[in-house]
Simulated scan of single mutants.
Amino acid sequence: MRKWLQLHVDTPAEAAAAQAAGIVILSCEPDHQLEALRKAAPGAFLSAGMPHGSVSSPQEAIRLGFEILRRGADSIYCSHSPFFIEAMAREGIPVTGHVGLVPNRATWTNFRAIGKKAEEAVQVMRAVKDIENAGAAFIEVEVVPVRLADFITRSTPMITMGMGCGSTCDTQYLFSSDVLGTNRGHYPRHAKKYADFAVLEAELQQKRVTAFQAFAADVENGAYPQAVHQVDMDDDAFERFLTLSNKL
């Protein structure tokens, strides 16, 4: 079975790089960069998250869902209840649900693997079926045991997007911040760092500071601007300007 690669991207540069690398399933936030992300990766399937708590009725979910699609997304990630998912799905909006470790619900579960005990695994499976019955097309499966993730993938027609649950789901999903090493916080067990952009960005930031300091020093000591950095008028033109300006 084909394994699709998936990344959560934060910038247009990351989106373009992902598409160039053959990673064409992307997720993102529906912030001011959504249109730029769409432009940077026109051939990618782009799932944009509906901020949790941003809607309080099915009608608002439908309105915001269509708005996010209009801005360039191909599907809507929704961690709200199946009640909201069903409303959007009935209107033909492709929706991604979420089970397992759902950060927006970590107040009740904490940040841990979900479904290691049989009773909790049943709860996860019940949530899968609720989301499936609501009409979702995709479901993110995050940090659940491998055998449970495999059971979910084999038991649902939804495309499963796997993060931290082995290689059994339809997509292998990571955050670009973990892959690139821009994450300055905790790295989850399932993450793997393939570059250390944090070091590169720190070096780049210091180069910015150094360049700005040099600019300030040049202005202070008169080294900038020089004649090559400016334009002037010849004497005749300036004299005519003075004459004409007297008539203002």
Rank of each mutant, 00 (worst) to 15 (best):
F111Y: 09
G222D: 09
A211N: 13
P94R: 07
Q59G: 03
E239R: 14
A216R: 15
R184W: 10
I159S: 01
S176G: 04
V144P: 09
A40M: 06
A216E: 15
H8A: 01
C28A: 08
Q19F: 01
I93Q: 05
F45C: 05
N183M: 11
E132S: 13
A16C: 04
K192D: 00
D150W: 12
M161N: 00
G115V: 08
S47N: 04
T243E: 15
L37E: 00
L64H: 01
Q19D: 02
F175E: 05
F175C: 03
K3G: 03
V122L: 14
I76N: 06
Q123I: 12
H190C: 09
T182N: 04
E119S: 11
N183T: 05
S54D: 05
D236V: 15
L180C: 08
Y187W: 12
F151H: 12
V102G: 01
P30Q: 07
G135R: 10
V146L: 14
A89K: 09
K3Y: 08
I62A: 03
D150V: 11
T153W: 10
G100H: 04
F241E: 11
A61G: 07
D10K: 08
S79G: 04
R147P: 08
H229W: 14
T109H: 05
L46Y: 01
D234S: 13
L174Q: 04
A87P: 06
H32Q: 13
R154Y: 09
G185Y: 03
A198F: 09
S57G: 06
G181T: 06
P30R: 05
D150L: 12
M158I: 11
F215P: 11
K192V: 02
V231P: 12
M1A: 08
P82A: 11
A211Q: 14
G185P: 04
A89D: 08
P188Q: 07
V55M: 01
G97Y: 03
F83A: 08
H8S: 04
L244A: 13
F83S: 02
V9N: 05
A73C: 03
C169Q: 09
D196T: 02
V228T: 13
F175Q: 02
M233C: 12
K39H: 00
T11P: 00
E119P: 06
D235R: 14
M158P: 10
G100T: 07
I159P: 05
S79Y: 01
A20Q: 08
S167N: 12
P225V: 15
A44E: 02
A217M: 13
G22H: 08
P30K: 07
V122Y: 11
D74R: 03
G53V: 07
V99P: 00
R70N: 00
